[in-house]
Amino acid sequence: MTNSSGRHVEAFGLASVVELINEWGEVPRAVADEADAPYPEVTAALQISADDFRSRYGAPTTAALRTAADALYPLFGSDGPAMVEAIGRLLTSTALRPALIARDADTVDEVWECTRAADRLVAGAVLSIVEHLRFDGDVTRLGVCSGDDCADVYVDLSPARRRRFCSVTCQNRNRARSYRRARAEHGDS
Rank of each mutant, 00 (worst) to 15 (best):
A68M: 06
Y73K: 09
G88D: 12
A59M: 14
A71F: 08
T92A: 14
T62C: 13
Y73F: 12
L91A: 12
T92K: 15
G80I: 05
L96G: 02
Y57T: 00
R56W: 06
I87H: 08
A86Y: 02
E85G: 15
A64C: 06
G58R: 00
I87Y: 10
R89I: 10
A71C: 09
G77M: 05
A99D: 11
R89A: 09
D51S: 15
A50T: 14
M83K: 04
S93T: 12
F76D: 01
A86H: 04
D52F: 07
G88R: 12
A95P: 11
L90I: 00
L75H: 03
D51E: 15
R103V: 06
P81M: 07
A86K: 08
A95T: 13
F53E: 03
T107C: 13
S78D: 15
P98V: 06
G58F: 02
L100A: 15
Y57P: 02
L90W: 00
D104Q: 03
A99S: 13
M83L: 08
D52R: 10
D106W: 11
P60H: 02
P81C: 06
L75D: 04
P98A: 06
M83H: 07
G58N: 01
S93V: 07
A82M: 06
D79Q: 03
T92H: 12
R66H: 13
A63Y: 08
Y57N: 01
A64W: 03
G88H: 07
T61Y: 04
A59Q: 11
D70K: 05
R103H: 11
A99L: 07
G77R: 00
F53H: 13
A99V: 09
A102N: 15
D106F: 12
D106N: 13
D52T: 13
A102R: 13
V84S: 12
A102E: 12
A68W: 01
Y73S: 05
A102C: 12
A99K: 04
T62V: 14
S55Q: 14
A102Q: 14
A99T: 11
A69R: 00
A63H: 06
P60F: 03
A105G: 10
L75R: 03
L100F: 10
F76V: 01
D70V: 10
L100V: 15
I87Q: 05
D70A: 05
T92C: 14
P74Q: 05
A68F: 09
A99E: 08
D104V: 10
A68I: 06
L75I: 00
A99N: 07
G80M: 08
A86D: 03
A63E: 11
L91T: 12
S93F: 02
D70F: 03
A99Q: 09
A105H: 07
L75Q: 04
A102L: 14
P98F: 05
D106L: 15
Y73E: 04
D79P: 04
T94N: 03
A68D: 02
Y57F: 10
Y73Q: 04
A69V: 02
P74I: 10
A63C: 05
D106G: 14
D106M: 14
A59R: 11
P81Y: 12
P98D: 05
R56N: 10
D70R: 05
R66A: 09
L90S: 01
S55N: 13
S78A: 15
A63T: 15
D52S: 14
T107G: 06
